Amino acid sequence: SDPATGADELRRMAAMGARIVVAGTTSDTAHALLPVLEESDVIAVSPSASDPSLTKESRMFFRVFSSDELEGRRAGRFLYDDQDKTTVLIYAEDTAQARGIEPPFRQVFEQAMGGEVVGRVVINSDGWEQESSDILAAARPSAVYVLGYGEATISVLRHLREQGFSGLICASSSFYTNQIVDSHPDLVEGVFFPQPAFDVKTEGDLAQNFVAAYRQHYGVDPDIYAAHAYDAIRVVIWTIAEAKAYTTSEIRKVLAYGMKEFPGVTGIIQFNDYGDVHHNPIMFIIRDGQVLNFERYIDEERAKIRERIKNLLSN
């Protein structure tokens, strides 16, 4: 995830003859790769870089992960429409990923819905905790939105718990890994976050075979990044097999025009003119150490309530 290391490794692979690579796990690293892709005449398929500007800045960059634009909009609708939260405090890490999510979130939450962003705190900046405490006390926001990677988000969650914040907490998809959830169960309990639609309970042989193989090898469920990495590798393998020649122009032609509704464990993969996929994020919630599809969780809870009522009426 270090940008300089990523650029050096890309140059090394290009020198070995690579014309297509799986690369760019974070948006900051992906930005560092863009000029190297152009100078080396190599195409990258990213499993997880989500800054909206990446695919617009280079025709050599494709990704199987949804753009931050979709995530920000989904979070805005979820907080205002689904959860009736009208005021929010934003915590943002100084990263390309956070800068990509915040504008579309504000566009939906503030401009389209009429909500109010009561403040913005830069995570780990000088005095950020005191600044946060002052805003929480003065504005009393009904929700917070945390835009940061794992450890940065954990710092905010720890601070919010210490402050006794009782409102809704929504994080970005970049915070979630199995390790984060397992290491900080009390801090992440009840946290919502949007992410592209991968769920270990997804039906279909492709997804379930992947989940079973991953569990057998690693002993845990695959997370969103494992699923997207798997899809990125499958896309690259398929593209190389389909290309008439192992050249950059032929490879790009297959990705841009030959890939039609390619089946992935994260959904159907088909690139638009920029090299983006369109996978609408869905909301997840962390309950008792489990990451649950929120809509499915609500449906299951309602079913339990109906069953209890039915049992009471029959007794």
Rank of each mutant, 00 (worst) to 15 (best):
Y176A: 12
P222T: 11
I240S: 00
K201D: 15
R161H: 10
E203Y: 07
F175E: 06
V220N: 11
P185R: 09
S155E: 11
Y149H: 14
S183V: 09
V200E: 10
I237Y: 03
D205T: 12
V211A: 05
T153C: 07
K201Q: 15
E250A: 14
D182T: 12
H217C: 07
I240T: 06
F175L: 04
S249W: 05
G150A: 11
K201A: 15
R161Y: 02
N209S: 15
S172A: 14
L206T: 10
L255H: 11
Y225N: 03
V188F: 01
V211N: 04
L147G: 01
Y145N: 02
A213E: 11
P196F: 10
D186I: 09
Y230L: 04
L157G: 00
Q208W: 08
V188N: 01
A256Q: 14
S174P: 01
D231S: 01
A232C: 02
A207I: 13
A241K: 14
T202Y: 03
T202G: 11
M259K: 11
L168G: 03
S172H: 06
A226I: 05
N178S: 13
K201M: 14
I224G: 05
D186W: 04
N178W: 02
D223V: 08
L206H: 07
D221Q: 09
A245C: 00
C170K: 06
S174D: 15
A227N: 02
L160R: 02
M259H: 10
A245V: 03
T239Q: 01
I180K: 06
D182Q: 14
T247Q: 04
Q179N: 11
V146W: 03
Q208H: 08
D221H: 07
V220D: 13
R252K: 14
Y218S: 11
A227G: 02
C170I: 14
G258K: 10
G164Y: 01
S166V: 06
